[in-house]
């Protein structure tokens, strides 16, 4: 069984601080893996190493068995690693539709087309509109992204990831800061993705009920190292998790 995505001894140091410490882990297609751990455990940094925003000090990243350790962030994106960011990361003065359309356009490989008129590519706009529907933002298609309320910005962030149609979806706390009634839209999207056997999903999430419900597997990071890995029930019950992470959560 080849993994869709695999990291081997992935490590990054910032000076003396080891933010991610020799994480070796493979992710099978058709599964959703939740990555949990206390703040500062290295979850987002691990994501940055996988999607190429940061270069690893040592270790390797494989996509469908191919070594992509030296590939840049745009290359990894084009090869099928899609990323939604924890801190909302949009094109603030462009419209909601344009934010998504740019992702659709990248997917279609049309970026270096200098001579056609962008608005003549109806198919790209149509696809972007479809995606807008799925996150219930169609009514705000002409708003500037910066003018959206926080919850809608989070939805747009996820919509951009959807538009890229990657093989590997990386969600970094997709529901953080959302109001309770907005969360189901995002969870439904992730559930929809889970039914696709060719998609691999990585999810960083703090809400344990969400993790319990969605994940096929949980890995736990603590101080940059992988400290637990297994089926959700098993991991949640393990003493190391109780102590390192969930203990704190329960105590709250």
């Amino acid at each position: 069984m080849t993994f869709a995505l695999e990291t081997q001894d992935l490590t990054i140091r910032f000076g003396g601080h080891v933010a991610v410490n020799a994480v070796s882990c493979g992710f099978e297609p058709g599964t959703l893996t939740a990555i949990v751990g206390p703040n500062g455990a290295g979850k987002t940094t691990y994501f940055n190493l996988v999607s190429g925003q940061l270069k690893a000090t040592s270790g390797k990243v494989f996509l469908h068995g191919q070594d992509i350790s030296s590939a840049s962030a745009p290359q990894r994106s084009r090869r099928g690693i899609g990323r939604a960011f924890q801190l909302t990361n949009l094109f603030p003065h462009l419209t909601v539709l344009e934010n998504i359309r740019l992702a659709v356009q990248s997917r279609a490989g049309l970026g270096l087309n200098l001579w056609s008129i962008w608005s003549d590519h109806r198919e790209l706009i149509g696809r972007a509109e479809e995606i807008l529907e799925t996150v219930a933002l169609a009514g705000k298609r002409d708003w500037a992204a910066a003018a959206l309320p926080h919850g809608d910005q989070r939805k747009l962030e996820v919509a951009i990831l959807m538009a890229l149609e990657p093989d590997v979806f990386m969600f970094d706390e997709p529901t953080a800061g959302m109001s309770v009634d907005e969360v189901p839209v995002i969870l439904d999207l992730i559930r929809g993705l889970k039914t696709r056997s060719d998609k691999t999903i990585l999810l960083v999430e703090h809400k344990m009920d969400v993790v319990r419900e969605l994940s096929d597997r949980i890995i736990v990071l603590h101080n940059g190292a992988l400290v637990a890995d297994g089926a959700p029930a098993e991991v949640i019950a393990s003493p190391i998790v109780q102590e390192a992470y969930l203990g704190i959560e329960v105590a709250k």
């Binding site: 994106s77 949009l90 740019l102």
Partner: peptide
């Protein structure tokens, strides 16, 4: 349109594969 995206948020444009 990609140029405008780069002006707005270069980091994100890279993450989109540009």
């Amino acid at each position: 349109r990609v140029l405008q995206a780069i002006r707005e948020n270069e980091f994100r444009a890279e993450a989109l594969g540009y």
